[in-house]
């Protein structure tokens, strides 16, 4: 599960449960400097929980998570805030703030997190919005007035506005039509290359994974069961991976479906 580059994020033996349900069961994964890793896996396999554990939104019961060599499990307060400044995140639902205009959403991290003046932050926000193909007029709209694809673009602009070192993408193409999904994938690749950021994405969209990943890892039952370069995913030799990427109902991964 390791990378050739110096590790930006290292997860070792991470465990997380919710009551009796074990979600992460000794997860190991590394993300290298400037590397784009995509974690694939079915719904409920622990992908989102993994991201939330790194961000400190959830607290693992066991294991180690290091960011730039610094242990972040158990980190709190100002220390946690300092580490979080390295991160940007595009949420699955975009998670835009309803009460703010679009440009205020994009500028949020600059104003609240970095203490930038509203005027300066607006300038940066409009530049980032242009980078993802959104005009100035969109900036004055409310998020509710945008389509799903536009909301994702705004979410992407917000994720890159502070020029973070690490960006997380939580199912960036879910809910989008294939064309808009590909547009978002292209934007992700462009933005990440420009920033030189390390990225960790989770998705079950293989087209998206192939496009944005340097390396793909598959999570199953809370563990990484396979990881390798993107070009090797079709020849992984792993039956779970094959079943997932080719979308077969039959295979080692059994869905709990009640049949009449």
């Amino acid at each position: 599960m390791s990378t050739q580059n110096p590790a930006k994020i290292v997860m070792r033996d991470v465990h997380k449960s919710f009551g009796p349900k074990v979600v992460l069961d000794g997860l190991d994964l590394e993300v290298g400097q400037g590397e784009s890793v995509v974690v694939i896996g079915g719904s409920g396999t622990g992908k989102s929980v993994m991201l939330k554990c790194v961000l400190g939104l959830l607290h693992p019961e066991q294991g180690s998570i290091k960011v730039d060599g610094e242990e972040v499990v158990g980190m709190r307060g100002k220390e946690r805030d300092r580490v979080l400044e390295k991160f940007g995140m595009l949420f699955q639902s975009a998670a835009l703030f309803d009460s703010l205009k679009v440009w205020e959403n994009v500028a949020f991290g600059l104003i609240q997190g970095r203490g930038m003046s509203r005027d300066d932050a607006k300038g940066v926000a409009l530049t980032k919005m242009a980078q993802v193909g959104l005009g100035e007029d969109v900036g004055e709209l409310s998020p509710a007035e945008l389509s799903g694809g536009m909301q994702k673009r705004v979410g992407l602009a917000r994720a890159i506005a502070t020029e973070p070192e690490i960006i997380f993408f939580d199912e960036p193409t879910t809910g989008l039509d294939p064309i808009m999904g590909d547009v978002i994938n292209d934007l992700i690749v462009d933005c990440v290359q420009e920033l030189g950021a390390s990225t960790l994405s989770i998705t079950h969209d293989m087209a998206s994974a192939r496009k944005i990943a340097d390396r793909i890892a598959m999570i199953y039952k809370g563990k990484i069961i396979w990881a390798g370069p993107t070009e090797e995913v079709d020849h992984s030799g792993n039956a779970h991976v094959d079943q997932f990427i080719f979308g077969r109902a039959e295979g080692p991964i059994q869905m709990e479906v009640l049949r009449p």
Binding site: L55, F87, G113
Partner: peptide, 19 residues
């Protein structure tokens, strides 16, 4: 309002934006 922000991950987004 806060409940909707919670279930739509807006509160998580606040945290990731250092707020």
């Amino acid at each position: 309002e806060i409940g909707t922000m919670r279930v739509t991950e807006q509160i998580d987004a606040l945290t990731t934006l250092s707020t």
